[in-house]
Nucleic acid binder design. Structure first.
Length: 250
DNA sequence: AGTATGACCTGATGGC
DNA sequence: TGCCATCAGGTCATAC
């Protein structure tokens, strides 16, 4: 976002090329030639461009990338031409999505609050009303927009909470700790450009460095940095889940 | 309400 | 430059 928004803001789309892919869900977006980009913002896991004639929402899924001025290849799914440069949407696995509309598409608008904007009280109250594992709750985009598998595991380690703990069984103190851990983690991760596991890069083609600060994610079998116990890797909610069985209690 | 399972895709990696 | 299984930053639909 840091490189994306300033580059696009105020620019006009000259033309677009869309290639057949499931990320479009059966229908290509309009040409958009002449449309001006008013603003580009992150909205959960979506990048949303506010245009002078509607909205374009892009979800990068697992392997999506937005890259400036690279040669198109077989994983290029969309190309937006601007005056003097172009923006490619690449997505190997096609788990991404491109949405558009004259209004912000409902599936984007319906997402929960930003994790950095939700108040501690609201966070606690809403958690208390649910009885699902804290990890499932945090990953639910209607609860909070933007939390994914890496950051969920990392923040639960920092909060010293077992990922399978039911939200309604967590004390207010524990939930407050989770909220604090979430904020601290995200601020640090954003400052470091995110986590690059294999292929994630920003628009400048650069990797983030937050993966170097991971304390549990992808560290199964390695010693906990706090207590030395081996980090466990289990499957919870069909997602690889990493935690310290000694530090993280139910 | 919540959980479990499989599907959707492609590529990397490791064992044989 | 083989073959097969497993795994991956995420949803999504369906069945219990």
């Amino acid at each position: 976002m840091r490189a994306l928004a300033p580059r696009l803001q105020g620019e006009r789309i000259v033309g677009a090329e869309y290639r057949p892919s499931r990320i479009f869900r059966g229908e290509f977006p309009p040409e958009l030639a002449g449309a001006q980009v008013l603003q580009v913002r992150r909205y959960g896991k979506f990048v949303v461009a506010d245009l002078d004639r509607g909205f374009l929402g892009i979800h990068l899924g697992m392997t999506g990338k937005l890259l400036f001025d690279v040669a198109p290849h077989k994983h290029t799914r969309a190309i937006w031409e601007f005056a003097g440069f172009r923006l490619n949407l690449e997505d190997i696995r096609q788990f991404g999505r491109v949405l558009w509309g004259e209004r912000l598409p409902e599936s984007i608008a319906a997402l929960g609050p930003d994790p950095l904007e939700v108040s501690r009280e609201e966070f606690i109250e809403r958690a208390k009303q649910r009885r699902t594992p804290i990890k499932a709750w945090l990953l639910n985009q209607k609860v909070l927009r933007g939390m994914g598998n890496i950051y969920t595991d990392e923040l639960l380690f920092r909060a010293r909470i077992h990922p399978g703990t039911r939200t309604d069984e967590l004390s207010r103190t524990a939930l407050a700790r989770t909220w604090e851990a979430m904020r601290g983690l995200l601020e640090e991760a954003i400052a470091k450009g995110g986590s690059s596991i294999s292929d994630y890069v920003n628009t400048a083609g650069e990797k983030g460095t937050f993966q170097l600060a991971h304390r549990v994610y992808a560290r199964g079998g390695e010693p906990c940095l706090v207590c030395g116990s081996p980090i466990e890797k289990i499957v919870l909610l069909q997602r690889g889940t990493h935690f310290c069985p000694r530090c993280q209690r139910r």
